[in-house]
């Protein structure tokens, strides 16, 4: 019993640091760069992706013995796309301001490699509870990385913190937290470049350097993009498969 709890905790915490999807596995870079212009958007995106991740992990893990190996990728895509569309409809209905802020990036959670990656790497091999916890950990890790990016970019690029917080808080009713709608840093001229696309790449680069520094200290390998090797779809990709076959021969 204690063992089980311990391992579940491990599944959860690995997504935060050791296997942080953004900073260590370099997955989901597109939304990380695109929606980190404001902290409120980053949290909204992170929560939406986490919900999809947990739900799809649970369903895929529950169906892991039913889905034939041959059609598993299309089956995963169908499951993930359904959850994404459901989340999208709920956001449209209850948090319309977030829907217009995230725009096309909300339906694009479908092709966020973190989700398909976890389905392929974890959920189809592990029991339901562990998969749910894994999804939760990865989702929180993704949200944390997004949050860090957004904190720096919004603070330096717009001179605000939690700007437009009521857009999210509206879900819980009007004027929650005393109508808190973000703070503006006084006497500070924002460096607009930080919320422009170039600022996104720059902040991500610096954050990555920081993650590398920590990795070096802990003697872990650095986060690196190796062409297709890290891609969660590599199992089905003919290029990688043929390369593997070449190696075998």
């Amino acid at each position: 019993m204690a063992d089980e709890k311990c391992s579940l905790r491990k599944e959860f915490t690995k997504g935060l640091l050791r296997e942080n999807p953004v900073l260590r596995l370099v997955l989901g870079t597109c939304p990380t760069l695109a929606v980190s212009t404001s902290m409120v958007n980053a949290i909204g995106m992170g929560v939406a992706a986490t919900i999809v991740l947990v739900c799809s992990n649970i369903v895929i893990s529950a169906l892991r013995k039913v889905i034939p190996g041959k059609v598993r990728i299309p089956a995963y895509i169908v499951v993930i796309a359904s959850f994404v569309t459901m989340v999208q409809m709920l956001v449209k209905a209850f948090v319309p301001a977030l829907d217009s802020a995230l725009g096309v990036y909300l339906p694009l959670i479908v092709v966020n490699c973190i989700i398909l990656g976890r389905a392929e790497a974890f959920a189809n091999k592990n029991p339901v509870l562990a998969s749910a916890v894994d999804g939760m950990g990865m989702g929180v890790g993704f949200t944390a990385a997004l949050f860090c990016m957004a904190l720096v970019r919004e603070l330096l690029g717009n001179g605000t913190l939690f700007d437009g917080a009521q857009n999210l808080l509206k879900v819980f009713g009007d004027n929650v937290l005393g109508g808190f709608n973000g703070v503006t840093i006084p006497h500070f001229t924002p460096i607009t470049a930080f919320i422009l696309p170039c600022g996104g790449f720059f902040v991500f680069g610096v954050l990555m350097a920081l993650a590398n520094k920590i990795s070096d200290k802990k003697k872990l390998p650095r986060a690196e993009l190796h062409g297709c090797d890290h891609c969660p779809l590599s199992a089905t990709c003919s290029k990688v498969v043929s390369e593997r076959e070449d190696k075998r021969i």
Binding site: P68, V71, P74, V79, S82
Partner: peptide, 18 residues
Amino acid sequence: LVPALVLFLIGLLCTALL
């Protein structure tokens, strides 16, 4: 046939949910 059928059922279920 079996994989096709399973995929079809999953698709049907998801569409119904949506």
